[in-house]
Design a protein around this nucleic acid. Structure first.
Length: 276
DNA sequence: TCTCAGGGGCGAT
DNA sequence: ATCGCCCCTGAG
């Protein structure tokens, strides 16, 4: 495997913590699948052992995915503003944001409506097994996340077999939308608000899912995606009004964390989930 | 066997 | 602006 010096990177909370549904930890290795690559990682101290499949040694891909160019210490300094964050930064030291493929992120988070993480993870794997390309990773079978073409053309019955219920129509329509509009390329250059508007125009995508996609695939650093945990953080920890509108709370966090709300929220999610 | 909530969003009021 | 409903799972 390839080697990389990688200090201050907590792979476990980063990859398995809920920003991605496409990683597993088995026998000391992290196995991930995207719609183009499978990735195998192992962490030993500050050393990362890594390989990509089927295209080997794709360091550019890995660098982009793990956001290795980020000035992590600067961000920590900026967001470390109160006792909650301080505790979380200490407890979950090395937690990062990753930058996943836009289409995979959108299509995965479409499955998150009234669902839980184990359920989403399961469905993502069922979809990949049925519609994704099989990759050999050192003798282990990994299925890539399906392309938008595969999902757009899949019979509804097959999607329903993946335990996604009423979300099946969202998924298929979104995949067709991606094919027809070609927004996946364009959105990479959009500013935050334009990108959010583009996402919310997709059937099945509201505030929360749009913000998750902006945060976990488009690299926006100043967004607070407000799921149930996010609301809990806002109201229980920061005393914000539970009756406030989604955008008000999102913007409060964006202002408070001075450009790095996305990173701060990731720490706070872990913090509040550990509390319960 | 049954109930219920679980990382939302839509559409009818 | 509020509210029932969408389908499926696992926990209790």
């Amino acid at each position: 495997m390839n080697k990389l010096h990688l200090p201050l990177y907590n792979l476990k909370t980063t990859l398995l913590g809920g920003q991605s549904f496409s990683w597993d930890f088995e026998d000391g290795y992290f196995y991930g699948f995207t719609n183009t690559h499978a990735i195998k990682l192992k962490q030993a101290g500050d050393t990362l052992y890594w390989q990509t499949y089927p295209e080997k040694d794709d360091i550019e891909f890995l660098k982009s995915y793990l956001r290795l160019e980020t000035n992590y210490l600067m961000i920590l300094k900026r967001i470390n503003k109160d006792k909650y964050i301080k505790t979380a930064i200490n407890k979950f030291s090395g937690l990062r944001l990753v930058k996943q493929d836009f289409e995979q992120t959108l299509l995965s988070f479409l499955l998150s409506a009234v669902n839980n993480v184990p359920g989403i993870r399961k469905s993502v794997r069922l979809l990949s097994r049925r519609l994704g390309k099989k990759i050999n990773v050192d003798g282990k079978e990994i299925y890539l996340f399906p392309t938008k073409e595969a999902i757009a053309n899949a019979p509804l019955d097959m999607l329903l077999e993946c335990r996604i219920g009423f979300r099946a129509k969202y998924l298929k329509l979104a995949a067709q939308h991606l094919l027809q509009t070609g927004i996946s390329q364009k959105i990479q250059n959009f500013k935050e608000n334009e990108a959010r508007k583009t996402l919310k125009a997709i059937y099945g995508v509201g505030n929360k899912i749009a913000d998750c996609v902006l945060t976990y695939s488009l690299g926006f650093d100043n967004i607070a995606p407000l799921d149930r945990w996010g609301w809990r953080i806002a109201t229980k920890l920061y005393g914000l009004n539970p009756k406030a509108k989604y955008d008000e709370i999102r913007m409060w966090f964006a202002d408070y964390f001075e450009g790095y709300a996305s990173w701060a929220m990731q720490f706070l999610f872990e913090y509040i989930r550990a509390e319960k």
